[in-house]
């Protein structure tokens, strides 16, 4: 837990990426963890036709009482970006003192590949230049180092776990226990992935001068 926040405040976490990346699963995990902490919780998606490579954004809000399920622009405490350009797209949703946790993966859609639009030259540098607190790392490489490329989701959750208003261990327990029940063989590696992400998430990203 890193900030002394107003106990009545609602925590707003925006998870963004592309259909098929596991954005909604990550948001679901966060919502469940918040539920175990006794909060009122709401989670909503704007996914449209997301399974076909479109943009996905998932809003998780929790606090003593949550009304609107949507996070308003400029109100997100945390932005979890599963892809670099998506993190850039959504940064205006962050509060001025919010934190962006970004996977440096770059996925160019067909219309970029076809030359109709450009992929931003350096989305992370642009993001850092906004003055926001950005933490960026290559979650895919970490996952591969762990021997399972599917660990990106857990790594990203580990990465933000020290920026939540409840202890990181609670989120970890939620994830790992879930695997223990449904896929016990994967519990151990998820625990390691969580810790790997947690360590990676501590380092703030700066631009070269």
């Amino acid at each position: 837990m890193r900030t002394n926040r107003d106990p009545d405040a609602v925590t707003n976490i925006l998870v963004v990426g592309i259909g098929g990346q596991g954005v909604m699963t990550a948001a679901e995990m966060l919502a469940r963890a918040a539920l175990t902490q006794g909060y009122d919780v709401k989670k909503t998606e704007v996914a449209g036709m997301a399974q076909r490579g479109g943009i996905v954004s998932s809003h998780v809000r929790f606090g003593p009482r949550v009304y609107s399920p949507q996070i308003e622009p400029g109100e997100a405490d945390l932005l979890i970006g599963f892809e670099a350009a998506e993190a850039l797209r959504w940064w205006p949703h962050l509060r001025p003192n919010g934190v962006a946790m970004v996977n440096t993966l770059r996925i160019a859609p067909p219309i970029v590949s076809a030359g109709i639009y450009d992929y931003p030259a350096d989305p992370l540098a642009t993001l850092v230049a906004t003055g926001l607190e950005v933490h960026a790392f290559d979650a895919g490489a970490l996952a591969e180092a762990l021997g399972n490329p599917k660990m990106v989701n857990t790594i990203m959750l580990g990465a933000i776990s020290d920026y939540l208003p409840f202890p990181a261990e609670m989120l970890k327990a939620c994830i790992v226990d879930g695997f223990r029940v449904h896929k016990p063989a994967l519990a151990e590696i998820n625990a390691r992935a969580f810790e790997a992400g947690r360590a990676a998430g501590h380092e703030r990203t700066h631009n070269a001068d």
Partner: peptide
């Protein structure tokens, strides 16, 4: 091929 980390991954750049 290597199993995909993300089903629609294209390329990865470390920064």
């Amino acid at each position: 091929p290597q199993p995909a980390a993300q089903p629609i991954q294209v390329h990865r750049h470390a920064h």
